[in-house]
């Protein structure tokens, strides 16, 4: 689906635990449902009526998009943009550009291990939802980590969809104590022992992604990372969101080549 720019209004601003919010928007009536075919991992640029002081839109992966034109994102306050969005009230207007980038493919033969941390949850949450909707909840397994139980949000739908989920918290308040990568490691070992075909899809804080990458490469398992970089446009023009890669060119672009990259391709130390 080619990207477009359209207006939307906030329908619902739901505060969750851990400082997270879900914002649900409805597209302007004339726009239809421009995001309904979005792939998990694809993203949108969101800008409120911010005047001249805060110029650039902010990139968010989509948590969910419906055929009626509504869609939602997950946010946590990190800076001025997310602070402004968290204060948005129903009816508040935003401008959306999207869908942008390339997302994850639906599970094929290999079981997809979905590794999520923090605001990196949406692409994997949507991937799990889509697998369940396709009648294949067993084709995905979720590994979801946070600092504590409050950091783990929107977990009930995962149960409803019948998606097997392993939780990990640093303080042990929910699931395994420790990093989510510990649980992933155990799962990869088990798959290796049984000869089960698996692949890893991950989105979350950079330290988590680095650990997942190292682990995926060590186990020789196909590992896809959904990355985030600061970007001004989101559609391949500003060239701000370069991602260091191996290959004939030193950089690719998070917005137009990604945000999903093969771990083997990413040039991280």
């Amino acid at each position: 689906m080619p990207p477009s720019q359209f207006g939307a209004q906030l329908v619902d601003n739901q505060a969750l635990s851990g400082g997270y919010f879900t914002l649900r928007f409805a597209c302007d009536a004339a726009c239809g449902a421009p995001l309904s075919g979005i792939e998990p991992g694809q993203f949108i640029m969101v800008r409120g009526e911010w005047g001249r002081e805060m110029l650039n839109p902010r990139a968010f992966s989509v948590l969910d998009a419906q055929a009626d034109g509504s869609f939602s994102i997950l946010i946590k306050i990190y800076g001025r943009g997310t602070a402004a969005l968290s204060a948005l009230r129903p009816g508040g207007a935003v401008t959306i550009t999207g869908p942008l980038g390339r997302g994850f493919s639906a599970p094929a033969d290999a079981t997809q291990l979905l590794v999520a941390g923090g605001v990196g949850l949406p692409p994997l949450h949507l991937q799990a939802k889509r697998a369940a909707a396709a009648g294949r909840p067993e084709a995905v397994e979720m590994f979801y980590g946070g600092r504590n139980a409050d950091d783990l949000v929107l977990t009930e739908p995962l149960d409803d969809w019948g998606v097997k989920t392993t939780y990990a918290t640093e303080d042990g308040s929910r699931g395994h104590q420790g990093f989510v990568t510990g649980a992933l490691e155990a799962r990869l070992e088990a798959a290796k022992a049984s000869g089960e075909a698996v692949e890893v899809l991950a989105c979350g804080p950079t330290p988590m992604l680095r650990a997942v990458r190292t682990m995926g490469l060590a186990h020789d398992v196909r590992t896809l990372l959904c990355l985030e970089e600061e970007m001004a446009c989101g559609f391949g023009v500003c060239l701000g969101c370069a991602v260091p890669v191996r290959g004939p060119k030193p950089y690719k672009y998070c917005c137009s080549d990604g945000p999903v990259f093969d771990a083997r391709e990413v040039r991280w130390s």
Binding site: E230, C238, G240
Partner: peptide, 19 residues
Amino acid sequence: MGNPLPRICETASGMINSI
């Protein structure tokens, strides 16, 4: 091939780039 990361940041009523 362009510069290393980070290449852009937003500032008050503007942005800084070093592409």
